[in-house]
Design a protein around this nucleic acid. Structure first.
Lengths: 160, 160
DNA sequence: TTAAAACCTCAAGCTAACTTAAGGTCAATA
DNA sequence: TATTGACCTTAAGTTAGCTTGAGGTTTTAA
């Protein structure tokens, strides 16, 4: 039995092992911990030890990031997981439902954007007074209070 | 005739006017200029003056950003516009085609991600050795060389 | 047992996309 | 004409999400 397999069985993982397994750097795990996204305890020599479910947490963090969700939002959603026991299938399922809705909104937004790209950027109405692209109230107006996408650039579109 | 209408007719716009009309701050216009995204000339008093098509450029920049395209990419795409003449309908249309494809890729990626969220985050296979979420080669593997989304977090997923 | 690998902390650095501040000039209007 | 508002430049600050480096300790393995 290798050391890593042993670690796995004993169910307290080192930071290096978690890093390798989850595909993130050790520094990222430290960083996530300072941000309250993951937790660890220390051994006698002050080294971090993790429960195996940290791997799922990190994978979920990465998946959520790929959806465009910020670490702060992810943290808040992860905070809904139970603290006392290891999260169950149902716990994780609830999380995913939460993000599914956001993802659906984002996809819908992108699709509306796509239509706008068709109709607007490439349109023939180069007159500033006629083209809706110059009319901020029209342009992407429905998104005003909707999904937050990509650092919210659409909020800027509606300023002033 | 107001001053602003006058400016519009005379077709050389002040930075303040462009800022108000395009919904971005003056400092943003300065910034875009240093980044080579827009251009201006100076009047006798060293103040910036813009051609009206800067409004379309800014609107297009904002739309592209909402698609998740970086300023650097936007700059490169805008660089394909003619320098000597005011861009025509066809010029802008070509741009929009370019970004439509990227947007389609992004939408497709999000949709694949959505399926993964269904099947993976919320799944019952909490065993580390079985769940594909722990297997970086499986998880989102198709995206390896695909669309760049949201600061490329999916690249991280495949590291190490 | 000892050298290398892994780990620790804390501070600083990095990129994108801007914003803010300071100190000064130019232009519009009462 | 004078004052207010718009504009100028340059430098530094901001946020997110990390990474890098320095200097030191612990663990592992030959």
């Amino acid at each position: 039995m290798t050391v890593q397999q042993k670690k796995l069985v004993e169910a307290n993982l080192t930071v290096g092992f978690v890093a390798k397994r989850s595909g993130v750097k050790v520094s990222t795990l430290h960083f996530y911990e300072t941000k309250g996204l993951i937790r660890s305890w220390r051994n006698n020599g002050n080294q971090r030890r993790y429960k195996p479910d940290v791997l799922r947490r990190v994978a979920v963090i990465k998946a959520a990031q790929a959806m465009g969700i910020t670490l702060e939002e992810i943290k808040q959603t992860l905070a809904t997981l139970p603290e006392q026991r290891t999260p169950t299938k149902e716990d994780w399922s609830a999380l995913s439902k939460n993000w599914q809705a956001q993802l659906d909104e984002r996809i819908a937004f992108m699709q509306r954007l796509r239509e706008r790209v068709d109709g607007c950027i490439g349109c023939g109405c180069l007159s500033m007074t006629k083209c809706p692209i110059y009319n901020k109230d029209d342009y992407l107006g429905e998104e005003q209070s909707g999904a937050v996408l990509l650092n919210n650039p659409q909020k800027e579109l509606n300023n002033g």
